[in-house]
Design a protein around this nucleic acid. Sequence first.
DNA 1: CGCCGACTAAGCATATTGCGCAGCGGATAC
DNA 2: GTATCCGCTGCGCAATATGCTTAGTCGGCG
Lengths: 157, 157
Amino acid sequence: MAIDHLDGRLIVLLAREPRIGVLEASRRLGVARGTVQARLDRLQSHGVIRGFGPDVDPSALGYPVTAFATLEIKQGQGADVRAHLATVPEVLELHTTTGHGDMLCRLVARSNADLQRVIDRVVGFEGIVRASTAIVMENPVPLRIIPLVEQAAEDAR
Amino acid sequence: MAIDHLDGRLIVLLAREPRIGVLEASRRLGVARGTVQARLDRLQSHGVIRGFGPDVDPSALGYPVTAFATLEIKQGQGADVRAHLATVPEVLELHTTTGHGDMLCRLVARSNADLQRVIDRVVGFEGIVRASTAIVMENPVPLRIIPLVEQAAEDAR
DNA sequence: CGCCGACTAAGCATATTGCGCAGCGGATAC
DNA sequence: GTATCCGCTGCGCAATATGCTTAGTCGGCG
């Protein structure tokens, strides 16, 4: 779904100041409250905005180490491996990618030593042929969406 | 910061039903409103909960293609490359990782053809020696935090 | 034993929400 | 040209939530 300029401003506003409500947003955007409400409903029902879940920082929870693991899977074992990885809390996300029928997953751990435990648990499963892990040192660009929203809103102009 | 069982339940509740307010949360958890308010304040001030930003779906915005690019950087060019990548809206996140002074970034694009444009823009910068890209086909485990929160709350028990 | 921190329960003024209403363009179809 | 539709506005209403304060209770800890 395409978004227009007002949608873009609304999303950016909400991203920057999530605590504000519909009424405050309408004041900031200079439109009627009903308009903001209608736009929000539309954005949510169209799935552009999935929700407003709390943004939890794993490092504040005691998991300061992040890593990405590339997994090589034995043919035909994909579904089993997925189910296995879904049971590991430290697996924050999992993608299947082009390449060699591979998967890429994001892991967190309590320490570098703990990462070993996590990796052992991840790869300790029949069907995973090989895993190569890259530990994250810095995160210069944290997961963001604002620039893309602005781009999309601009395109619709 | 360690979280206790009530913190864990609160976070999970908010993650599952973000629209509920403090009062409703206190009803669901069976505790007083002031308690929920105090817990929330504490979680936020300690950075466990960074905020409640809208969860935007790039594919609904017209960017259905996701890819991960591993970048090899020329020595000493790290800072410049970071600044460059930060200007590309399609770069949703960027990490520096162990390995070969490498970086890993998440990209989105409007189509596979458009991905070529994005990659050209990403690597069209002096300082990037090589890039290898993996296109995401499926996302069996979307970015999640609930299992980790439950784990952390359990550990504190 | 006394203190302290956390939780409960209640109250109050204010702000926000969800909802419906009529009116008003601008764009579109005929 | 004109009828129609759609989105936005501005308003009002009752119901509800918020921010804040107070007082009382309970358990742990030095």
